[in-house]
Design a binder for these strands. Sequence first.
DNA 1: TTTTTATGCGCAATCGATTGCATATTAAAT
DNA 2: ATTTAATATGCAATCGATTGCGCATAAAAA
Lengths: 341, 341
Amino acid sequence: MKRERATIHDIAKKLDITASTVSRALKDHPRISEATKKAVLKEAKNLNYQPNHIAAALRIGRSKIIGIIVPTADRSFFSSVVRGIEEIANASQYNVMICQSYDIFEKEVATIEALINARVDGIIASYAKGTESFDHFIKVKDKGIPLILFDRSNEDIGVSNVILDDYRGAYEAVNHLIKQRCKRIAHLTGIKKISIYNERFRGYREALLDNGLSFDESLVIESDMQLEDGIESMKKLLSLPVLPDAVFAASDYSAMGAMQALKERNIRIPEDIALVGFGNEPFTRFSEPQLTTVDQRSKEMGNATAEIFLEQVGGLRKPFVPKKTVLKPELIIRKSSLKKG
Amino acid sequence: MKRERATIHDIAKKLDITASTVSRALKDHPRISEATKKAVLKEAKNLNYQPNHIAAALRIGRSKIIGIIVPTADRSFFSSVVRGIEEIANASQYNVMICQSYDIFEKEVATIEALINARVDGIIASYAKGTESFDHFIKVKDKGIPLILFDRSNEDIGVSNVILDDYRGAYEAVNHLIKQRCKRIAHLTGIKKISIYNERFRGYREALLDNGLSFDESLVIESDMQLEDGIESMKKLLSLPVLPDAVFAASDYSAMGAMQALKERNIRIPEDIALVGFGNEPFTRFSEPQLTTVDQRSKEMGNATAEIFLEQVGGLRKPFVPKKTVLKPELIIRKSSLKKG
DNA sequence: TTTTTATGCGCAATCGATTGCATATTAAAT
DNA sequence: ATTTAATATGCAATCGATTGCGCATAAAAA
């Protein structure tokens, strides 16, 4: 069964021409006659020839592969971004190599190394929660490999990035709660070090102040933003002398945790406490009540990063100017925050 | 900034030795003196050398890359399998290239082509819903490229595969419902062509018969198993003259749809109608009530496929014997099926 | 008819790492 | 002091595709 893989040399031998001609014929080179082109194509089919990208990559110096690093593909946000990247990249004959850092710094560094060694033509990444130093990213940039960051990003690296206007998303979410006549709005936030959480916090705070509400530090709970953290954080809020009448969680996961904690105590959502998450994860449509949340435009984010990548490889010779793209989030209003009347 | 990438020749030149020696030194070849090894390693660091996997791959004939094809990485089941594959593969210096077929046959064929051209060392796949012909898989096999299928598989291709004992999972789920004193159990099933749905259907049916319950064709609704289909299917069931007292859905998505339809009609779960899904998707923990479901052992499935892959590349010379692995599912009992008393 | 210009294809080097075989040097054995 | 064995490294081909340069042959222009 296991016949040897045919090469352009095999085709050449059969037709009594050289590999150069075959190579050119396959690429539809103008200096090759139509007759030989046809013959080559026919023989290629006959021998079941399939080009060896590895050989070409070595010669050309481009692998036509984009490396993608995400904390985890398990999260619909990231897989959706990947989908957006693929859409654009595939159209330009690029394949993607998806890698997961599992939010571990060391794994991220190792992955970068692996991708460089695999000679990917570029890297698109969203860095790990545990990432403190950005030297590994700077190394990529210094090697002249196009690097684009999305969602989680850092200005200091000096590369192009695509992010969401987290501030605005949070602002609108809180604004919406205020319009629902909520007066005492709590906030579940993540590690401040990560800019997205910091931005969402800012949006929360500003919305309060702009609407004449006071900012109360005791209503802000910081955690790791997983489901369990949401439960814990909500319990803390429920032990306050005066309960909040709304909670804006900076992640859907923690929002779901909060929802479970509320249900356990038989607190009505949204009548007693309204709830808003962030991320528009698929499960937010499945909860009871369905969760109001902020859509992160994941597919568009993927599209945008891929387009920036293509621009950069296209203009590798030109002086490089980092480009920042900010996407506008969309508030998805559902029952968890809609008070009647 | 963009200094040229160093090669073994650069290292060789600096140390006034040949590339052969450098290559061997880097691989810790026994016939190279410790002194030169040290010198080479030092100079490699100094020049910031990083091996070019592409060149090695071309020479060796192995890329150290495994191609993975999944319908969509958006689904936690698949991304979890991928994670399981990576765990094992990375430990053996393999990288993975994840591709999505989006459940489209043509895309799947094109992806196979791309992976072959990229000279991956093997392909691990779960085929698309739309896949009718398996010639593209057979082509992979005939080229001598290790191919392992998981979850969705087909005996006729003659390759190793790892599947879940869907029959057993369904049987246990229905058995559990019967123990909860349900007597009239409906079933939401997918396209029969896909073996997993057929197996789940068989398990459902057998469990009924084994427990002395009759099988009623009118209680089985076939659909595409998405959330919306679940809603539709449940509505059909609710329009029957005699209502079921339980529903076993062959996918969590359709189960969630059914749950929504039931809530809309104010039918109590599980008191009036108990509900069981299949897949243990993360959102099943977030629903109210939490959904009883069947865990598909996704991580173990990934581990198993990767291990089989490693076995196969290890023994490429030996005669190939397809290996079938069947994993035991686990019933996760939650509130949606637990009747009191 | 001679000169120009296209046209079609071959030669050989190249990309970077690997490896069988040969060779030089040194150490051990006789 | 030879011969033998062990040690350390070099030579050169190879993996498959690409491409600048050059050389024919044929067609067009002078």
